[in-house]
């Protein structure tokens, strides 16, 4: 039996390797759709999708919008700012309002970890997590997986090191779960002040020096260093960060093999990554962006089709009482 995704995509942690492969395999034909002269298929015609962004995001929102439009869905963008508290309306009220408008899907980005799950438990529409706090960013994880698979031909056995601010990174968490479930070896590298406690217990190796990570890895996924981390006292300065942890041409030249370099963007050139690396032959950063649309189309497509019976199941579960 082919696996399904269920009602929502909240993270990669709850997915099986089989479900992850289903999404990646489904993304393949969608890559081709984006290469057509008419980059649009009628698959989700008549479906309404709300892009609910409580946090500003240009590239993720645009990538989702492209994916939705190429599947012919009707989309509405709602931009909120800050947390629900600042906004005045609680998330539960937002959820009830969306439900009342009979929308089919919600793509949500929110500054609080767990917000996507909170919403998903309260509405029948499909919910796609476009990033919740420092928890998960599953579609970014999926596009990274797809890019690694494109480049290496496989994920199983690949050595992937995620570099930088792991503590505050939802991209890191989604990558860790996705890679582990598909059989990759996963490591993280960064100053310990930016590594979450107990990260080893998830099954990842910790490198304290970027040189060691480069010597070990097939793939580096270089995370964006949020500039506000410096002000919060996690690192002394951006200059020092670049000196100690920056992914530079000089460091890559000493690597025993050619590395594949990923970055979720937007990049801080000269902080976590050298411009020559970002623009160089190892970089697959633009490939990631292209794959982002395909992966999101696959997710929307799979969730849309999985909807009726799963929504029923969710409903009967909920009617069991709080």
């Amino acid at each position: 039996m082919t696996p399904t995704l269920g009602k929502d995509l909240l993270g990669l942690e709850p997915l099986s390797g089989e479900q992850l492969r289903l999404i990646l395999d489904t993304a393949e034909p969608f890559k081709e759709v984006s290469e057509r002269a008419i980059k649009k298929v009628p698959t989700l015609r008549g479906k309404t999708i709300v892009n609910l962004f409580f946090e500003s995001s240009t590239r993720t929102r645009i990538s989702f919008e492209f994916a939705e439009k190429r599947l012919s869905a009707d989309t509405v963008n709602i931009a909120g700012s800050g947390s629900s508290v600042q906004k005045g309306e609680t998330l539960v009220d937002t959820a009830r309002n969306l439900e009342a408008m009979r929308i089919d899907m919600v793509v949500m980005r929110h500054p609080s970890s767990g917000a996507a799950r909170f919403l998903a438990e309260r509405i029948r529409s499909n919910v796609v997590n476009a990033g919740d706090g420092t928890h998960e960013h599953p579609t970014q994880g999926l596009l990274d997986l797809l890019t690694i698979r494109d480049r290496l031909g496989r994920i199983e056995g690949a050595k992937v090191c995620i570099c930088g601010d792991i503590l505050h990174s939802r991209v890191a968490r989604s990558n860790i779960w996705g890679l582990l479930k598909l059989g990759a070896h996963v490591a993280v590298c960064g100053p310990q002040s930016l590594l979450p406690r107990g990260i080893e217990e998830l099954g990842v190796t910790v490198f304290r020096r970027i040189e060691d990570a480069i010597a070990w890895a097939d793939v580096l996924n270089v995370l964006r260093l949020q500039l506000e981390r410096m002000n919060a006292g996690f690192i002394p300065s951006l200059r020092e960060y670049y000196r100690v942890f920056g992914v530079t041409v000089e460091r890559l030249e000493r690597a025993p093999r050619d590395l594949v370099i990923l970055h979720p963007g937007p990049m801080n050139r000269g902080v976590e990554i050298d411009s020559r690396v970002a623009d160089g032959p190892h970089s697959v950063i633009l490939h990631q962006v292209t794959n982002g649309v395909a992966v999101r189309m696959a997710v929307l497509y799979l969730l849309a089709g999985g909807r009726p019976e799963l929504a029923e199941a969710a409903k009967s579960g909920r009617e069991g009482g709080e």
Binding site: V33, P42, T43, L44
Partner: peptide, 19 residues
């Protein structure tokens, strides 16, 4: 598959063949 008008009734056909 992507052009079908009955996605709701049949659920997705996960393996989409080549076009």
């Amino acid at each position: 598959t992507l052009y079908r008008d009955d996605l709701n009734e049949i659920g997705p056909r996960p393996v989409i063949g080549e076009t």
